[in-house]
Amino acid sequence: MRRAAVPVLVVLGVLVAFWYAVAVPMNIKGVLTEAQRAGVVVVPESGADRRAASAWRLVTMNLSVVPDTWAQARPRLPAPHQVAIELWETTAQKKVTSKRSLVYHGWVTLSATLLGFAMGTGLGILLAIGIVHNRVMDMSVMPWAIVSQTIPIIALAPMIIVVLYSIGIQGVFPKAVISAYLSFFPVVVGMVKGLRSPDAMQLDLLRTYNASQAQGFWKLRLPASMPYLFASLKVGIAASLVGAIVGELPTGAVSGLGARLLAGSYYGQTVQIWSALFAAAILAACLVGILGVLERIVLRRMGGRT
C-alpha cells in the first residue's frame, strides 16, 4: 500500500503542475486586459496587438502578472486551488439545504442515479435471464439492446422528459429513466455472459441429477454469474450518474449537478462548472468504490481466495 502511494502521488503532482502551467497561457489575455484597466503597464499596450500575439509570447513578456492568472474571478481555466476552494466552500461551509450547496445538488442527482441504477440493473438482469433461457428472446432482444445504445443519449433525453411530462410524470423519475436506459445495457451484456459461463460438463452434471431448469439457475448459473455481475454494475453505476446529469440538462432543471453545470456555463462561472464536474467525478468514484467493497464481501463469502 505504502509502496504504491509514491508513484500515485508523483503522477498526481505532475498532473496538477501541468494544470497550473496551462492555466497561465489560457488566462493571460484576460488578465492583461484587467491589469491594463487597473493602470498597470502591459506589453504590448494595444489590445489588438495582444489579440494577435501568441499566448506564450504574452506570458514571457509579462511575467509579473503570471500569479494573477491563477486568481481571476471568472478565468477561462480556473487553477486547481480555485476549484478546491470552491468545492470546500460549497460543500462543507454551506448548509446542505442551501441552493448553493453542492451536497444538496449532489443528492438531487444521486437520488435519480440510484433509482435509475436500481431500475436498470433489475431490467438488465431480467432481460439476461430471458435471453439465456428463451431462444426467441435470445434472437430478438440483444440486437435491440445494442441499437438502443447507439442513439446519442443527449438526443433521446429531451424526448423522454417531454413524453413523460405530457403524461404528468416529472421530478426524479424521468431522470431515473434516462439513468436506467444507460445502465441496463452493461448489466445485460455481463449477465448474459455470466449466466452462460458454466461449461457443458457442469450442465451435464446437473442433468445427471435430473435437476430442473430453475434449480440449474439458482444453484449454478446465478452464483457463477456473480463476478460478471459486479464488473457490469461498476460500469452501470457510472453510466447511471452520467444519465442523471444529462437528464438535468434539457429541462433547465434548477437543482442537481447537471443544473449547476448548465447555470455555470450560462453565467460564465467556470469555477462553478469545474467544481460541479469534480463533484460528479468524486461521486462516481465513491459509488464505484462502494460496489468494489460490496464485491469483495460477496465474493469472499462465496469462497473467494482474497
Binding site: 460438463m201 457442469q202 452464483p223 457463477a224 462465496m302
Partner: peptide, 15 residues
C-alpha cells in the same frame, strides 16, 4: 447412477 467427469467440476463458491 452417479457420474464422475474428467474434471472435478466442484463449485468454487461451495465448500
Amino acid at each position: 447412477y452417479g457420474y464422475v467427469f474428467q474434471a472435478a467440476g466442484l463449485y468454487p463458491w461451495r465448500t
